[in-house]
Design a protein around this nucleic acid. Structure first.
Lengths: 226, 226
DNA sequence: TCAAAAGTGTTGGAGGTACACCCATGT
DNA sequence: ACATGGGTGTACCTCCAACACTTTTGA
């Protein structure tokens, strides 16, 4: 027991890389830091882990406090622990990435924190190692999107295949052949065609789809063979 | 600044999941815990992060102390932070996985710590959440092996294709077609045939190969397309 | 001589890419 | 009428799984 005592203790924080999707662009929710050091500079949403709270719980709490949303997709990215990553005092930080539907996001929270949705590929410099956290999160998001359908996390509950394709194009920063993309996505058997059509984005109108309720967690089995 | 003060501080540890490969089996280095609580029970190699030391550095130090080896492949797996993960006192732990060549491992260190190489699929129960750490590490290892050549980390510097295949079979817990495996691996252009032959494992004798010096970091581009 | 690994070749199928083509419709 | 996305079909290519077959050599 006394073995434990002699070791140093650290402040441990969580930082959330919050992805949203709007107007054909993948966006990130960042805000001007509210306190010193680096007060006013752009930063990820973060907070310190409290007693009797796991880092997962802390990340969910931070997300709830800053966006007003519960039950968000959250995944741990990595822990950042360079001893000089914050100038004034040592803080170890566990980075998380979150996917939220911007439509659900409570706008009033924006004002409260001065937060801003910012396109991921035009991000300003962030404090400390937050840009690195974003890079790693983007990679994780690409991985996740590669073997599960992120549509249900980032898009409205019903969406057209054009919208889904645009989302994937935003995530991978490349374009996909419309015909092939459609066939691929439908062949997975995870999408359900609705009766409703969306006519705002094309003359002909495209059917809405939704993720089949039981297939939300579908693994697209892009499994490594070798 | 005073904002920082009011938050709790935590002991932060690293735990190392150390993979080795021997006699056709993927093995893990574990040892009987040297202090309370859970003294004597099987445990991963771990240690507390010290002042002015990052978790990466701490993991490398723990590895050095317990195996005598420097410059080992080490990768962060995940951070475990459930508030009750250790019964007596709260500790947040960053798990790492390491790949080492058992041949290089200093045997005297075994005696010093009572450590033991244990086949991964016959592991005894480990303390706390260490079994979970092992599971996640194995997944990471499979991922890594899926798009880079782990041969150079786990095998001697020269190896036959049989040895490489047995290693991959151990990692993925499945068998590969010998002919296809050979063709696949050679087609990557990362292996160099040596003049020497190994005659201990077959009558005919198999040529040794090594990873081309410039291809150690080769990505096998098993890239997500969609 | 036979078993077992080394090493090469062939074949069929699955799935991805590129691209042609028709459909529906608002402007 | 025409531009635009919706939606379908096809030809080609790559890669992989399965498996046949020959070679070598120690037991």
């Amino acid at each position: 027991m006394e073995f434990y005592v002699q070791h140093p203790r650290f402040l441990v924080a969580v930082d959330c890389v919050i992805f949203g999707y709007e107007e054909g662009e993948l966006k990130l929710l960042i805000y001007p830091r509210a306190f010193e050091p680096e007060k006013g500079k752009w930063s990820l949403m973060g907070g310190f882990i409290q007693q009797a709270e796991s880092s997962d719980e802390a990340a969910a709490r931070v997300l709830k406090e800053t966006t007003g949303l519960n039950e968000i997709f959250l995944e741990q990215v990595s822990t950042f622990s360079a001893s000089d990553r914050e100038p004034s005092e040592r803080v170890i930080s566990v980075a998380y990435f979150a996917l939220i539907k911007i439509e659900r996001y409570k706008k009033n929270k924006t004002r409260e924190f001065g937060a801003k949705w910012w396109p991921v590929n035009e991000l300003p410099p962030l404090i400390f190692d937050h840009n690195e956290m974003v890079l790693q999160s983007l990679k994780k998001l690409q991985q996740k999107a590669g073997h599960s359908l992120v549509g249900s996390e980032l898009l409205p509950s019903k969406f057209t295949l054009l919208q889904l394709r645009k989302l994937y194009e935003a995530i991978y920063q490349r374009s996909f052949d419309p015909g092939n993309f459609r066939k691929k996505m439908l062949s997975l058997g995870a999408l359900e065609k609705l009766d409703q059509k969306n006519s705002t984005e094309s003359k002909k109108g495209a059917y809405y789809y939704r993720v089949k309720p039981d297939k939300t967690e579908l693994e697209l089995e892009r499994i490594i063979k070798y």
